[in-house]
C-alpha cells in the first residue's frame, strides 16, 4: 500500500511539474519533451488504477506517434526567441481568461463532492468485475457492443480528418517525373536493348 501511495505521489507530482514546465520553458522543443514526460506519468497513473491497456495505448498513440510528429514540426521551426517574448503581454489577457475559466471548472468539479455528495455513487461499478477479467477484454465487451455506433462514428471523424488533410496538401504539379516501379520491373532485354548494324560513315 505504501509503495502504491508513493508511486502515485511521484507520478502525480512529476506530471503536474512537467505540465507547468510545458508552458513555462522558453524553448519549444523542451516544451514538447516535457509534454512527453507528462504523458508518461499519466500512463503510470493509469497503471496504478489497473487500466494497463489504456496506459499502453496512451504511450503508443500519444508518445509514439502524435508527439513524434509534434516534435518533428517544432524542431523544424526557426525560432526567434525575442519575437516569441514580445507577444507575451499582448496575449496575457486571453491566456489568463482561459486559465480562469479552467480553474473555475476545476473548482466546480472539486466542489461537487461537497454540494452533491451522492454524485460519486451515481457512477456504475465496472460492469464485469475488474478482478475476474483482464481490462483489455472488459473494454472490448462494451466498446464493440454498447458503444459500437459511437466507436464507428469516432472512426468516421478520423477518416474525414485524414481525407481533409490530403485534400489540403495534395496538388498535381506539372513536369514532375514519377517512378513507375511496375514498369521498371517489367522491363526486359527486348524493350530496352536494340542491336543495329551501323554502316560506316552514316550514323543512325
Amino acid at each position: 500500500m505504501i509503495v502504491e501511495a508513493l508511486a502515485f505521489y511521484m507520478f502525480a507530482a512529476v506530471a503536474v511539474a512537467s505540465g507547468v514546465l510545458v508552458v513555462s520553458v522558453r524553448n519549444p522543443v523542451h516544451s514538447v519533451l516535457f509534454l512527453i514526460l507528462a504523458f508518461f506519468n499519466a500512463a503510470g497513473l493509469f497503471v496504478l488504477l489497473g487500466a494497463e491497456f489504456l496506459a499502453m495505448i496512451l504511450v503508443v498513440v500519444y508518445v509514439g506517434a502524435v508527439a513524434v510528429l509534434f516534435l518533428f514540426v517544432v524542431m523544424m521551426l526557426d525560432i526567434d526567441f525575442a519575437a516569441l517574448r514580445s507577444g507575451f503581454i499582448r496575449y496575457l489577457p486571453i491566456g489568463a481568461m482561459v486559465g480562469l475559466v479552467l480553474l473555475f471548472e476545476l473548482a466546480l468539479i472539486v466542489g461537487a463532492w461537497i454540494t452533491a455528495p451522492d454524485a460519486a455513487s451515481a457512477f456504475g461499478a465496472p460492469s464485469p468485475d475488474a478482478a475476474k477479467i483482464a481490462n483489455t477484454h472488459a473494454l472490448g465487451l462494451v466498446l464493440y457492443t454498447k458503444y459500437a455506433y459511437l466507436f464507428q462514428a469516432a472512426g468516421m471523424i478520423l477518416l474525414v480528418a485524414m481525407v481533409g488533410a490530403i485534400v489540403l496538401t495534395l496538388r498535381d504539379r506539372e513536369g514532375v517525373r514519377r517512378q513507375n516501379i511496375g514498369e521498371q520491373v517489367a522491363r526486359g532485354k527486348r524493350n530496352s536493348v536494340e542491336v543495329r548494324k551501323v554502316r560506316a560513315g552514316s550514323g543512325i
Binding site: I36, E52, F53, M56, V59, G64, A134, N135
Partner: peptide
C-alpha cells in the same frame, strides 16, 4: 503482464526519441 505485446510495441515505438533528440 497482460499487455506484454503492447508494452513491447510501445517501447519499440519510443526508440525514435533518442535519435530525434540527438539530431536536434
Amino acid at each position: 503482464i497482460n499487455v506484454g505485446v503492447l508494452y513491447l510495441f510501445a517501447i519499440s515505438s519510443l526508440g525514435v526519441y533518442g535519435i530525434v533528440m540527438a539530431g536536434w
